[in-house]
């Protein structure tokens, strides 16, 4: 990821800023321009609460190159308490702890580094509450 693209996504990657539809109050993360429920184009920016539950997950054993040191790792769909669903890595669980329905919260973590000398990309991962 270019550092310019990462920088554009800081509000979401760092602060979980979502768009909440002014008309029907549906949450969108990442934000979008038109509400798919009511067609409204007006949104208010709100930070999502950091808590949610694991809806489903899988284990990645053959990762893309920037993630190879992390394999095997878990990627889950997390149902956030405010409504949006996130595709997110899960970490810091102990043996037998990871299961569907596990309450998690988002923590600030390194996502990957652009090699030894490049930029470090930060964002969120889910950890058991």
């Amino acid at each position: 990821m270019s550092s310019a693209r990462a920088w554009r996504e800081y509000p979401q990657r760092y602060r979980y800023e979502a768009a909440v539809c002014d008309q029907c109050a549906k949450w969108f993360f990442p934000p979008r321009l038109v509400c798919d429920a009511c067609g409204c184009r007006e949104f208010t920016t709100k930070a999502m609460r950091r808590t949610g539950k694991v809806l489903t997950y899988t284990v990645i054993r053959v990762p893309p190159a920037p993630f190879k040191d992390q394999a095997p790792y878990v990627v889950a769909i997390v149902q956030m308490d405010d409504g949006p669903r996130l595709n997110v890595q899960v970490t810091d669980f102990v043996d037998g702890q990871l299961k569907i329905g596990l309450p998690v919260s988002l923590e600030f973590r390194k996502i990957y580094e652009e090699g030894e000398a490049g930029i470090i990309n930060y964002g969120y991962k889910a950890v058991p509450v």
């Binding site: 992390q70 970490t91 923590e107 600030f108 973590r109 390194k110 470090i120």
Partner: peptide, 16 residues
């Protein structure tokens, strides 16, 4: 610290 933790990630969580 895990591979995905450093001074910045821990500082963010402590500040939060």
């Amino acid at each position: 610290p895990a591979l995905d933790q450093d001074v910045i990630t821990m500082s963010v969580e402590a500040a939060r």
